[in-house]
Structures are given as structure tokens and as C-alpha cells.
Design a protein around this nucleic acid. Structure first.
Lengths: 225, 225
DNA sequence: CCTTCCTCCTGCATCCAGTGCAAAGATGCA
DNA sequence: TGCATCTTTGCACTGGATGCAGGAGGAAGG
């Protein structure tokens, strides 16, 4: 599990970075659909053919950085404190991510991160390809939940629900931010929404999908790590 | 909102049908990726260019029939009996669909429907494009839930959860059927899974995602409102 | 029946994403 | 230095998708 870093591996990694950076820079500047891979390749000073050796599709130029995060949720569940409920671990991780303005929560003031997020949501082919990564994330999370002792059916359904909900929350946050709010302004509401969402996951919408907020879980045991 | 059916409209509709049917027939026979649109066009006896006038992409040749169903869930909620809980309406609709072996539940013995379902799930570009239709379904269902009086946040999250869960259930059913089970054999388990899923939606996974089935909801209070 | 108009169909040229192949170049190693 | 291996590259090709201009065939009016 180690890198025998020879000249080859080094240059490869560097080339890969250069290509991805160049691509994202161009895409952010002119729009994903307005830039051809030929243009990316030329700007990154590699041949078209080489670019495709590193990134199987144009979309992957943007999204492969999500590949690392695709099993994030599963990892959180696996590395949770002994005895802690998986959902609780995921909830805390989300709140922590919001606190740190993790770009994946949609809650960040970094203009480039916002633009990046917006580009993905606003580009059909990217949004679509992103769900592919998400669905692999579902598989991973479901597996982790089974390891945690969940019934396979429940594990799968819960995994799907958690990830779709996290995605929706991120989209909502991003929407508010592009509407002019700052991350700081949005943060309290983002936290409320996240807690509400996990309440729904834990306790359901009840018999009334319309219901008022269920008993607000005012104080949460503060568990960093 | 009416069709002034002249010869033109008639032929157009017929052509559209012919193209879609031809395409699906060819795709089922040889696989989606193994058939080019050129071949579809030739077989349907229209020009390539005409085909693209009817269907914007190759995927739409297969998926546009889902466009009608994309707001199905929203319709169910809107047309539910007065006083019924939206989730309850969706639950009943799903059980009814299972009973009728609705192909969309993945539970059908019709070989063509099974093959169709399998082709979509087994073809990257189709599976991915399908989620696009699903996400429009989320928008519609969320809107319907808001109309039903739900808090906007809850509406959106619930809508996303319901549809993702229905999709997962359908995939599970389809998996069992392709493994050799008949729809009749699978049905009881499919019903159990569906009820379990709606229990999760209504009452949550509880504090233990691992828990044994929560108190079996023998009878549902029929009238919370 | 003929003419005019309009719409839809068609072929062609073109762009772009993605792949196979074989030659040329760089690197690691003896 | 020389050999084996892996990268890079150019080229040709497939297949999806679009723009354009001309043609065919319904629709409408005389």
C-alpha cells in the first residue's frame, strides 16, 4: 500500500494534476460544454490521447476528485466510537463538516468552491455522472451498515436515504449561498435542516408528513471524534 | 389542450411510435450499446436526422416512456382520499402496484418487461439517465407534499427518500426475479420489504440502525386527520 | 385541379467524445 | 551502454449530435 516513487510515478502524478487543474480552470472560466477536451489537452500541453489515458471521460476530469470521497460515509460508520449508533455518527460528521465549511456540504464562502459546485449542478452530464459516484457510495455505506449489524434490507434502504438526504441538504445550502447569503448567515439554518433531516431518518415523518417539527432535540451530546 | 388531428399529427405520432418500438426491439435483441442510432433509423425507415428530431438523444429512445410516469407519485398524493396521510397513500399505491405486477415495481413475469428493466439497470448510460427523470419526480412529489401542508424542507427530504426507496425496492425485486424466482414467489417478500420500507419512512430506523424489526405495525391508525 | 404556403423529411458536412494501433520517446535496470 | 518496459503521441476511425439548405408532401384557397 505504498508508492515506490520513481521518476515515472512522480511525473505521472504531476501530469495528472496538471491536466485536472487545467481542465477545471477552463471549465470554470467558459463552462463545461463550451470547452472541448482537445482544448484542455492543448492547454495542458499533452496530447489528446494522453489525456484519455488518465481520465476515461471528459466528466471524470471534474469528478474524479469525488472518487476519494465516495466511500466517506462508509468510513465514518466504520470508524465510529464503539457502541455509537451509525446514524448518530453520520449526523455528527455532517454537523462537523458544516462547522468546517466543508465544500461538500454546499456551505462554503470560497468562490471557486461555490462555482465548482454550481457548475456541477448546472451541467446535465456532470450532475448525472455525479449520481453514479453517489450510487457507489450507497453500496459502500450499505455494506458498512451491515457490518454494524443492520438487517440487509434496512441497511440498503437506510444507506440510500442517508446519501440522498445529504445531497439534498447540500443543494439547499448551495442554493441559499448563490442567492447571496454568506456561509456564516446560512450556517444556523443549515444545522437546523441537518438535524431535522436526521430526525426524520431516525424517527420518521410520523403519520403526518405535514407535521410540525417533532420535539426539538435541543441539546446534543457534544462528541468530537 | 386538444389534438386537432390532421393527417400530419397522425403520421407524426405513428412515426414516433414506430421509431421507439423499433429501437427497443433492436436494443433488447442485441444490447443498447451494440446498436447504433444509424441502424435504428435504417430499420425504422426514417433518416438519421429525423430520428433525432423526435428523440433528442439515443437514451430517450428507451426512456421517454418514463416521462409520463415521472410525476406518478405526485399524482397519487394529490388524488388521495381526503384526510389520508400522503405517505399512507403512497404505501397503498405501491402495494397495489405490486399486486398488479406493475413492471415499475420490478415485480413482473412478463419476459419482455423483465428484459427491459434489466437492460436499463445493466446499461450505464441508461441507468444514469433514468435518475435524471427520477429527480424531476422528486421535484413534483415535493411540490405535492407541500400542497398537502408539509413543511418545505420536510417535503423535499421526504420526496427524495420515498423515490429513492421505491427505486431500491424495484431493483431488489428485479434482482430476485432474474435469479429465477417467479413474481408470485417473490410477491410476499416484496410486500414485506415495501411495508418495512414505509415503516422506516414513517417511524425511522430508531436509534439502532441494526435493530430487529420494530414493533410490527399490525394495524395502522387509519385516520390521523 | 392547381397553386401557394407551410411543415416536416432528408442528405450532407461538420463537430466532438472516445478507442485501437503502431511507432517513437522516456525511464528503469543490469 | 544496451535492453526491456512503460508513456506518449499521431492517425485513422466509430458513433452520437447539430446546422443548413433543398425537396416532398400535406393544408388551404381559389
Amino acid at each position: 500500500m505504498n508508492e515506490p516513487v520513481g521518476l515515472r510515478e512522480l511525473k505521472k502524478e504531476r501530469t495528472r494534476e496538471t491536466i485536472a487543474e487545467t481542465a477545471i480552470r477552463l471549465f470554470l472560466a467558459k463552462g463545461f460544454d463550451q470547452v472541448s477536451v482537445t482544448e484542455v489537452a492543448a492547454t495542458a500541453e499533452v496530447s489528446r490521447r494522453t489525456l484519455f489515458a488518465y481520465f476515461p471521460t471528459k466528466e471524470d476530469l471534474v469528478l474524479q476528485r469525488f472518487a476519494d470521497h465516495e466511500s466517506e460515509a462508509a468510513r465514518i460508520v466504520r470508524s465510529r466510537p464503539a457502541g455509537q449508533d451509525p446514524l448518530e455518527a453520520l449526523r455528527e460528521a455532517l454537523l462537523a463538516a458544516l462547522e468546517q465549511r466543508d465544500p461538500n456540504t454546499g456551505l462554503t464562502d470560497d468562490p471557486e468552491a461555490k462555482a465548482f459546485f454550481g457548475m456541477i449542478l448546472g451541467t446535465e452530464s456532470l450532475a448525472v455522472r455525479l449520481t453514479r459516484y453517489a450510487s457507489r457510495g450507497i453500496d459502500a455505506l450499505a455494506e458498512a451498515l451491515r457490518e454494524a449489524g443492520a438487517d440487509p434490507l434496512v441497511a440498503r434502504l437506510t444507506a440510500a436515504q442517508v446519501l440522498v438526504v445529504q445531497h439534498e441538504l447540500a443543494v439547499m445550502n448551495h442554493t441559499c449561498l448563490t442567492a447571496g447569503e454568506s456561509a456564516g448567515e446560512r450556517h444556523p439554518e443549515a444545522v437546523r435542516a441537518a438535524e431535522r433531516a436526521f430526525d426524520l431518518l431516525s424517527h420518521g415523518v410520523g403519520d403526518k408528513a405535514s407535521g410540525a417539527p417533532p420535539a426539538p432535540r435541543s441539546e446534543q451530546v457534544p462528541r468530537p471524534q
